[in-house]
């Protein structure tokens, strides 16, 4: 199933998340006008989410692990925004 959602991150920026999933996440692309230092951290997060079970517990665990990692500085993107966006993808209708 393919989904694309737009969520307003509580940190003030818009996140657009594209996801292709069935029982597991096949592909996820996180886009938006936020900042992350180092930038590659977001690519790593996408990799961590790819292949993960498409269910809230697993998603939450991966996001928590990511946000607990020291040294990644983010502006305009947060745990809450990402979690909300990914869950909206999982719960919504197929976009085709």
């Amino acid at each position: 199933m393919k989904k694309k959602v737009l969520v307003e991150d509580p940190k003030g920026k818009f996140l657009k998340i594209y996801m292709d999933f069935d029982e597991t996440i096949n592909e996820i692309v996180i886009t938006g006008d936020f900042f992350a230092h180092p930038e590659q951290a977001i690519d790593e997060l996408q990799e961590n989410l790819t292949g993960a079970k498409a269910e809230s517990g697993e998603i939450k665990r991966i996001l928590e692990d990511f946000f607990e990692e020291k040294g990644v500085r983010m502006y305009g993107i947060s745990f809450e925004g990402l979690y909300k966006g990914i869950m909206e993808c999982l719960e919504g209708e197929d976009d085709g």
Binding site: K16, I30, T31, F34
Partner: peptide
């Protein structure tokens, strides 16, 4: 566009 944006979007 910003590094994390989608050009086509």
């Amino acid at each position: 566009i910003g590094y994390f944006q989608s050009l086509a979007e």
